[in-house]
């Protein structure tokens, strides 16, 4: 039994085989290799597909109530929820409301308002934005997305700018 096993594992010299036997061996190897490959593939394919996150319906928020009038003092700001992302609402020294996306354009940190600098600042890598959302210093490559601010009675409504 063991000698037969050894033979089948390819220790037999190939020179002793006829052309026909060589062809047969190649055919068997082809089917064996192909079989292993397809088995492997049919295991890997579902796993790779499984790992790809399925598309989840994202709430497409276009407008939220960011706060109430009188909540902010001049020269201050607050973070509010805009859908699944943070937004920043600022009341300037001049008493004007401004709203931006609070996601830093550099590496997705959340920015904050610095009353001492009187502009928006990102703590992660010292990025600076002015009160129009423009990147003025540090690594941020683009300005912050600016939002529309409307005051409806007591509520401060922030909405996406229609492009």
């Amino acid at each position: 039994m063991d000698t037969r096993g050894k033979k089948s594992m390819g220790t037999t010299p190939k020179e002793g085989l006829s052309e026909n036997q060589k062809l047969r061996r190649r055919l068997v190897n082809f089917f064996l290799g192909g079989g292993i490959l397809t088995t492997f593939g049919s295991v890997i394919f579902p796993i790779v597909n499984y790992l790809i996150p399925p598309k989840v319906k994202q709430e497409t928020t276009t407008s939220v109530i960011a706060g109430r009038v009188g909540e902010l003092k001049p020269n201050s700001g607050k973070i509010f929820r805009f859908g699944s992302k943070p937004g920043i609402l600022i009341l300037t020294e001049q008493g004007e409301y401004r709203a931006f996306s609070a996601v830093c354009t550099h590496l997705d940190c959340t920015v904050q308002y610095r009353p001492d600098l009187k502009h928006i600042w990102c703590a992660c890598h010292n990025g600076h934005y002015d009160l129009t959302g423009k990147n003025i210093a540090g690594p941020p490559p683009r300005p912050l997305e600016a939002y529309e601010v409307d005051i409806r009675g007591e509520e401060i409504v922030v909405s996406k700018k229609l492009s």
């Binding site: 579902p46 796993i47 499984y50 790809i52 399925p54």
Partner: peptide, 9 residues
Amino acid sequence: TKVRFGWLI
């Protein structure tokens, strides 16, 4: 229901 091949896994 949503994940591809999730039912199979």
